[in-house]
Nucleic acid binder design. Structure first.
Lengths: 299, 299
DNA sequence: AGGAGTGATAGAAGGTATCTATCGAAAGCT
DNA sequence: AGCTTTCGATAGATACCTTCTATCACTCCT
């Protein structure tokens, strides 16, 4: 049984399309077809349901998939473990991050890239749930997400910072109060917030609820950029993670005031999967995160 | 990179001998040599130090070994996961057990074999430490060992029973007291016990120590069979796990009395590794263990 | 010096993976 | 309906990889 065939299988299960999967794997479509065929012959079971088109995995295929993923991940980690001894790491580092943490990944990734010049980086925006699933499925090497909410499986985590929120309004006339703003005041404004169901919105709702308030936003979106655009032009206000302030600092329209954070604040950190020995890539990420966390503490 | 070559590499690392490893893998020695060579060429690193004889793994080889083991274990589990859907499990189940639990594995293995007729069994006697190491290295599928002492890594465990001890003497004359025997009385007898350093002996020493006593055995051995033989013929007494009683019950020489167990008793149970999805073989073992534990409770 | 033991090398045979080119069925569009 | 597009399977050729047997080169032991 060949690793190659397993890679085809896993890619096919993800792409649900023979030619596309073959293309991603860098082989011709018949190659993937025949590899899958011999895999199925060797196991004596059909793995992929198909009749002219891809239909889906069989029961056996579904049972096999997570093991195949683990196997391929172990293979990559093995290669990394061997290569890492002779110098800096190479290859692609796949990082998932929740939108709320996106502005802060720069610091982390910069440190990582500086320390490992041969490494390339691929950052994707995902929900906290997706990040956990992707770590489970070996689709990303690490994630930046909430530490205290969902952490179901075997992961190692390093706290990076505690999330604080700020209240952003467009500058309206000359009134320019500063100092912390209360949740009551927030609730009085016409707001635009993230869509319900996004983790960050759930946290925000929880914070409001703790003060006996509830949010009825005039607009919702799935990105902070969209929220900021609406604030800038629409007269709405929003609440967003402190880390986004850096992006709009110095603009002439944004008026940022910290929010009183009395309740428990959400910790955000780096998480990597923890199965078996530690992948050197993951180890490098953890190191960087620990260093950054140390620096942040000193701030 | 082929799984075959990795299997050769792992076997070679264990056997430390090219021809022997090749034989175990069922191939000719040059096959193993050349497979190792191409593995090393592909990785660009030497994995095995050798000059006419096997010397040892290089640094890269040592870094690679645990990953290769995990990879092969994932492969086996994957095959099992696919085969298990179409009927009963097949293949060899490798079980490690501490000597103290050896008499009780029969119950467990019988249930396992009955439920999975296609399965073969390989039981080996190991220390509790060896069992943990072997689970770590994927050399056994499960272990029967102490639950509360060393459980360092990711394992799932199911308690089977609590270990109790009995005091065994050869029948001396007509005196045949029954009822529990005190630790003080035990300490007065000339004893034969397991070697110092074996976990069971450590527990025993701990129990004695808790009563302000200490054991100064006249003889030590590394097997309960040897201890029983010495009791039978040499006028010594010994302390051994209750489960061994079944073996000598009905003989005309053995005099068995329970020991007063006031202190914490050691739990013995089944442990399996826990990395990624659950190997159906391990799942089957856990099921059997849980059923047996349930039955024991009802006793 | 001779023999046993250990691993590397050479050359041939067989198997496996891959490619290009093509087919055949289904779905979609006019 | 008729045409085109899409998707996966099949065929045949080629290159590569694995494995075997036979043998060599070296070391260690007696």
């Amino acid at each position: 049984m060949q690793l190659r065939a397993l890679r085809y299988f896993v890619t096919l299960a993800r792409e649900e399309h023979f030619a596309r999967a073959a293309d991603i794997c860098g082989v011709a479509q018949p190659t993937l077809s025949s590899a899958l065929n011999s895999l199925e012959t060797q196991l004596g079971k059909r793995l992929v349901e198909r009749d002219r088109r891809y239909i889906g995995l069989t029961e056996e295929g579904r049972a096999m998939l997570p093991w195949a993923q683990q196997l391929l991940a172990a293979h990559e980690a093995m290669v990394h473990a061997v290569e890492a001894l002779g110098g800096p790491l190479r290859g692609e580092f796949r990082l998932g991050a929740i939108p709320a943490a996106m502005p802060s990944v720069g610091q982390f990734t910069q440190a990582l890239l500086r320390q490992h010049p041969g490494m390339t980086l691929s950052v994707r925006s995902q929900t906290s749930r997706e990040i956990m699933r992707a770590i489970e499925a070996f689709e990303i090497d690490a994630g930046v997400t909430y530490l205290d909410h969902e952490s179901p499986s075997n992961v190692i985590s390093v706290p990076l910072y505690a999330e604080r929120y700020v209240f952003v309004t467009a500058e309206a006339g000359t009134q320019r109060e500063s100092g912390a703003v209360s949740w009551q005041e927030v609730a009085r404004h016409p707001l635009c917030l993230l869509h319900q169901g996004m983790q960050n919105r759930r946290i925000l709702d929880g914070l409001l609820d703790a003060h006996g308030l509830s949010a009825t936003p005039r607009a919702t979106a799935d990105s902070y950029i969209a929220l900021l655009a609406m604030v800038q032009s629409g007269g709405l206000a929003t609440v967003m993670p402190e880390r986004y302030v850096d992006l709009i600092e110095g603009t002439d329209w944004a008026h940022v005031r910290p929010l009183a954070m009395d309740a428990a604040i959400s910790r955000i950190g780096l998480v990597v999967g923890d199965r078996g020995p530690l992948d050197p890539v993951a180890a490098a990420a953890l190191n960087c995160a620990r260093r950054i966390a140390g620096e942040s503490m000193r701030d």
